[in-house]
């Protein structure tokens, strides 16, 4: 039997080098990638599983110390958040107050002929039939009955009663309130009346008067109860009844009476009592 000739060592080396070059070539060209993925996937899975458990155990062992530190830090942060929230609320309140004061200041600049005193609304009348508010300035501050009260947007009402530290203001929406007004640009004099529902209406408007929806309503100054030319509202509709002597109009007030927080009292205006000038019937 013929004996195989031994492979020369150089040939083995050459074959190994060729194989190595081939593998490198295959790897460089990407042909080995599926094979590598297939072979490494189980290893990665096992490593991931092992790492998860190792980390869990590590966290469990080191947790007490970290939890204590975290709790302390959490308490500090919660206290900080509470402090910042309180600060934000305080600043928001100050901003809201400043906005109100700035709006009132705008009104005061618009009507520089008057002197004003800022007052806060501190309550509303307990009777639902009446539309009154209570303000935090009174006779000690120079407030007197009859002084007009305005807000940034326009007319609010009139001081009706005062005590040293507070005053009661009758709103123009009160059912008993009557304000002499003039429409613009139609220039018609009328009487503005409040109502139980807080709606405003123009009464005693002559039938021939041409009032249009959209006309502005300002105080006329007639009767001496209010200074002239303070904005009151806007006409939103008119109605004429065939048998009536006057026409009526509904007015949308410019002041939001539901959110009345601060007002201005016009302190240099004195209401004129004209009742002695009104002739009374004399018995024959």
């Amino acid at each position: 039997m013929e004996r195989l000739r031994p492979i020369p060592p150089w040939l083995s080396w050459a074959a190994l080098v060729l194989m190595g070059l081939g593998i490198v070539l295959l790897a460089l060209t990407g042909y080995l990638r599926p094979l590598l993925r297939l072979s490494t996937q189980p290893i990665i899975e096992i490593q991931t599983w092992a790492a998860r458990y190792v980390y869990t155990v590590r966290d469990y062992v080191s947790a007490p110390r970290d939890m204590e530190a975290l709790r302390r830090r959490n308490q500090e942060l919660e206290a900080e958040v509470a402090r910042l929230r309180a600060q934000v609320a305080q600043l928001q309140q100050q901003v809201a107050q400043l906005e109100v004061v700035a709006a009132l200041l705008d009104f005061a600049r618009e009507y520089p002929e008057h002197e004003y005193m800022v007052a806060l609304v501190i309550g509303r009348d307990p009777s639902p039939f009446l539309h009154y508010v209570i303000i935090n300035v009174g006779s000690d501050d120079g407030v007197r009955p009859g002084m007009p009260v305005v807000a940034a947007q326009g007319l609010v009402g009139q001081v009706e009663a005062v005590i040293p530290t507070a005053a009661r203001v009758r709103l123009i929406t009160d059912p008993g309130s009557r304000v002499n007004v003039r429409t613009t640009p139609s220039n018609v004099d009328a009487v503005l009346a409040g109502s139980i529902t807080g709606d405003l209406s123009l009464t005693l408007v002559p039938l021939e008067a041409k009032i249009q929806p959209g006309d502005l309503v300002v105080t006329s100054g007639l009767g001496g109860q209010y200074p002239p030319n303070i904005l009151v509202g806007q006409v939103i509709s008119t109605r004429k009844l065939g048998f009536a002597l006057f026409q009526e109009a509904t007015v949308q007030p410019v002041v939001d009476f539901a959110h009345l927080d601060a007002v201005l009292v016009v302190t240099n205006f004195r209401a004129v009592d004209i009742s002695p000038l009104i002739p009374t019937p004399v018995a024959p």
């Binding site: 009777s127 639902p128 039939f129 009446l130 059912p175 008993g176 009346a193 109502s195 139980i196 529902t197």
Partner: peptide, 21 residues
Amino acid sequence: EYSILSLLGTPLPWRAGISQV
């Protein structure tokens, strides 16, 4: 209150007074 205010001359429609107030 409604009766007295009405007697004193405040215009308070009774229907609105009852249903709205």
